[in-house]
Write a protein that binds this DNA or RNA. Structure first.
Lengths: 342, 342
DNA sequence: ATTGGCAGTCAGATGTTTTGAGTGCCAACC
DNA sequence: GGTTGGCACTCAAAACATCTGACTGCCAAT
């Protein structure tokens, strides 16, 4: 069984390996940390750790590196989420504090996060599913073309263009607009979709096909937009950490650009705001990111909805720093959106 | 002086080098192409080409590779823009044909372009400067918070949130909305900004500060959004072509993410829709992309505005294919936006 | 102008040796 | 029991040496 000192050894192995990318040996451990025992003793502990598959030796006569499992134990039991430096804190506040609308806040957040962690940063847009309709607008573009605009209380604006077969006059358009807003105001998006299905029934039979078509497009718009959007920044950091990936970073860049894998990954992670979770290495095999780790946290958005943000990088990353940064940013963002917008 | 055959030699050097990444020697040229002369003769031609700094030898006893200048001559005089394959043509039509609004079209375009060329693709949003106001909307979020929405005839929607000191009643909001639309409808964005500066004067003195504040925010919104937006896809392709960059691709990825360099680059390039231009290697030194080439073309958007699209990649790229693809996509996009939207 | 021939060059491949960091194990020790 | 020093062993990586072959440049002959 692995002793307390054994775990301590694991911790310094993770820390030193993350710092230096060199497999760490027993001698360098006793040199750089005061364990008060000899290298031989450390070696014995390391043998135990190896039995537990927490560390492994790249080849016979080399130091050890943590395994996926080793990182997992480190994250769960050994990492101290060192609080951010004062400089970092003020960076968050000054950088995010001055932003205007939701798009802007999130764009800033993702860039900030990538700077704080030197990793690829991800921010998920708050899902429309839990936000409420604030306003619906119909704007004629040409006689047979309408733009529909949804504005939600999460600060998100969604527009789409509709082709209609017959031209539509201003008066009726005004009436339609008013009725739509009366019917939908305050509903959640799914409720709004349901309400829209029967919307045409309230109109004179002659109008029904046209209204039904518009309503139908609005429904599609609501449903289509439920799939979440992802912001991303710092992909250049992948090139910097390239040596940490066996083979090329190509598949990683590809998976990242695809987004769907990332959204699935996010979907499977803890969403409770305030707590930070990590998925490490092979735990991400299913989405083709078996060589990367993702650190994420939920954040709460005004509509009562929850979304996630986090960073993605090689398994060999500074979990202590990154988890602290993710947590701090998620908290600040929740507070900012909360006080700001509802 | 370089003979006609000499230029022919340059052409095959570029083609072979692009295809194989191997420096190409005199012997392999006579083997793979029927010049009807011996290797020694080719060597003489190559010596001339080297004098003109169109090709260079990585080391004493190796074949030659094109220089920046060599690529430039190739692009200007030797490249044949081979028309796209039928499959590629249909890909463009089916892929772009079914898209809805501007955001959707451009997002599809950029992905398509990166697939056709295997490079990083860039699409610039049509500038707001030349588009016209179609509709202005004011939506109350909270009593002291307004969302302003600009809709332009280029299909673009811009929103922003305004904090106002005093609450604003529905009636006055309606009046303001109507007056705004009456005043601004059809103006270009710069004209709209000018008109807004004096907008408050038409209101009762008591209202003026409030109206002025809102108008001022609208002006800022118009001006701030003049800076163009860029879509990007296929960054993973950079990793694939990594060997074509000396050193790391990190600075390239960084410059790309920065966007500002790319926008400047685009700004300096030919914008005339229909013609394709290339900036090669060191010609891009000023924006930190001296190892990359950019192939771009203008496309016309409904408001009469023009924007650019193109691809970015290593100097050693298939210019013939990429220029053909960029031209085809730009043309198709111009046509699609034109017929579709005005 | 073109050619064959030949000496010269040098990157990259292949092979050999050296070095040293690190391990595992064991007998001795506390 | 856990701990320690010592020693034989391993093996990746570095350093060095050698070989190979694809090139070139040049020149005299055509």
């Amino acid at each position: 069984m692995v002793s307390d000192r054994g775990l301590e050894v694991l911790r310094v192995i993770v820390q030193d390996y993350v710092a230096s990318r060199e497999p760490v040996g027993s001698k360098s451990i006793v040199e750089r940390h005061s364990f008060g025992v000899s290298a031989a003793t450390i070696r014995n502990d390391m043998a135990l750790l190896e039995d537990e598959e927490l560390i492994t030796a790249p080849h016979t006569s080399s130091g050890r590196v943590p395994t996926d499992k080793g990182y997992r134990v480190f994250v769960d039991h050994l990492a101290d989420l060192r609080p951010l430096s004062a400089a970092q804190r003020t960076a968050i506040e000054t950088f995010l504090g001055q932003s205007a609308d939701l798009d802007d806040v999130l764009a800033r957040t993702v860039r900030l996060l990538s700077q704080l962690t030197n990793q690829v940063a991800l921010v998920q847009y708050p899902s429309l599913a839990t936000s409420h309709v604030r306003h619906v607008e119909l704007v004629p573009l040409t006689p047979t073309r309408l733009m529909t605009v949804f504005i939600t209380d999460s600060g998100r604006v969604e527009q789409r263009v509709v082709d209609i077969p017959v031209s539509i006059d201003e008066v009726f358009l005004g009436e339609l607009r008013a009725k739509l807003n009366a019917a939908l105001d305050g509903l959640t998006m799914p409720d709004a979709a349901a309400r829209l299905s029967a919307f045409a029934d309230d109109f004179a039979p002659a109008r029904r096909p046209l209204v039904a078509q518009i309503a139908q497009t609005l429904v599609e718009q609501v449903l289509a937009n439920r799939q979440d959007k992802l912001l991303m920044a710092g992909t250049a950091n992948l090139a910097r950490t390239e040596e940490d990936f066996t083979g090329s970073i190509y598949p990683v860049l590809e998976a990242i650009e695809e987004q769907v894998a990332l959204l699935r990954l996010f979907g499977e992670m803890e969403v409770d705001p305030g707590s930070v979770t990590a998925r490490i290495g092979r735990e991400n095999d299913d989405v083709g990111l078996g060589e990367t780790s993702v650190v994420s946290s939920g954040y709460s958005s005004p509509g009562g909805g929850v979304a996630r943000l986090g960073v993605l990088g090689p398994m060999r990353m500074d979990y202590s720093n990154n988890m602290a940064a993710v947590r701090a940013v998620a908290r600040y963002l929740s507070r900012l959106l909360g006080e700001d917008r509802q």
